[in-house]
């Protein structure tokens, strides 16, 4: 864990973000009133079960939602502008240069029929990071930076000739080529073996630290989040239920869902044998009568009050929860 920076200046501040998907089987209210921020130089983890809306949050901020997805409310303040209000053209100028993203499944996230060096060069050329003539050399420099052995030869390779870990390094090189101020890494190590996982996480942490970059690290693995992040934001079914510095969350999680999530995470305090699974599943987000608290259906601490709109309670320094009956 790195120390919390003395001066906290938000690099990205997401306020009241709501996203809906219009599908054939109805409107899916995937995100509702999502609020969180990331400071300059800070690493924030966005954790939650699969399907809780972590990727959608990232896509909404990046402006790369599917056509079916609509932002229905909110702002995403970044560098003095609201990303959600920018035109597609202006946003595209920022993407890849000021804010970048790394995806899950590095093998499919790269263009299968373009040499990886070219793919890095494309981004550099697009954002003025290099001229067309210099771009190949600059791409090789980036490959060196993400510690790919024999970069001159690897630049000429196609993704299918590289391992998953190598492909993820290429993704990182693409994302960081133009020195962005914010990096969103969406489950960057899911699907990689444990050793490669650690190497990739260390690489992201190191490069982000060097550049003083703000990082959002999306994962369903609390242990990984605790190891690499300053703060943890817990998400459940499109709501942010708790946000706290990592240490505080592990010491005293206040939201019943975070507590269950912690109990389901093998780590210092819980062994694999003791691991509890969280009962129930995510609610069906297509329902018209979704409860105010989307966790209430699975919650052992539910009160009558829980049907009221959720409160935002500050329970410690930078520690907020959305719950009527916290632990």
């Amino acid at each position: 864990m790195t120390a919390v920076p003395a001066l906290s200046v938000p690099a990205l501040s997401v306020e009241d973000l709501s996203v809906e998907f219009r599908t054939r089987s109805g409107v899916v209210k995937v995100l509702e009133h999502v609020c969180f921020s990331v400071d300059k130089g800070e690493t924030v983890a966005l954790v939650g079960e699969s399907g809780s809306g972590k990727s959608v949050t990232a896509f909404a901020v990046m402006g790369i939602l599917d056509a079916a997805g609509k932002v229905t409310s909110g702002r995403a303040m970044f560098g003095g502008a609201d990303l959600l209000a920018l035109s597609e053209h202006d946003l595209a100028e920022q993407r890849g240069r000021e804010l970048s993203m790394i995806f899950q499944n590095p093998r499919t996230a790269l263009n299968p029929i373009r040499r990886v060096g070219r793919q890095i060069a494309d981004v550099l050329v697009r954002h003025g990071g290099a001229t067309r003539n210099d771009a190949p050399r600059a791409a090789i420099e980036m490959l060196k930076k993400v510690r790919i052995p024999d970069p001159e030869r690897r630049a000429e390779a196609y993704p299918f000739e590289l391992s998953g870990g190598m492909c993820q390094r290429i993704m990182i090189a693409i994302a960081l080529a133009c020195r962005p101020a914010l990096l969103i890494a969406d489950e960057p190590t899911t699907g990689l073996d444990v050793t490669t996982q650690a190497v990739i996480m260390d690489l992201i942490g190191e490069l982000a630290g060097e550049a003083g970059m703000a990082t959002i690290f999306i994962t369903h693995d609390l242990a990984l989040a605790a190891e690499y992040c300053d703060r943890i934001v817990v998400m459940h079914a499109g709501h942010i239920v708790e946000a706290a510095p990592g240490r505080d969350l592990f010491a005293y999680a206040r939201h019943p869902y975070s507590a269950k999530l912690l109990a389901a995470t093998p780590g210092e305090t819980v062994s694999l044998e003791q691991m509890a699974s969280i009962p129930g599943g995510l609610p069906d987000l297509r329902r018209a009568d979704l409860p105010a608290c989307r966790y209430s259906g699975r919650c052992e601490r539910r009160l009558d009050q829980c049907a009221q709109p959720l409160p935002q309670r500050t329970v410690g320094e930078r520690h907020v929860i959305a719950c009527w009956n916290p632990l």
């Binding site: 595209a92 954002h127 693409i174």
Partner: peptide
């Protein structure tokens, strides 16, 4: 609709 097109868009490449 494939992943690498999302990467390309996320990198800000022109339409």
């Amino acid at each position: 609709g494939s992943d690498f097109i999302r990467t390309a868009r996320a990198s800000g490449l022109s339409p």
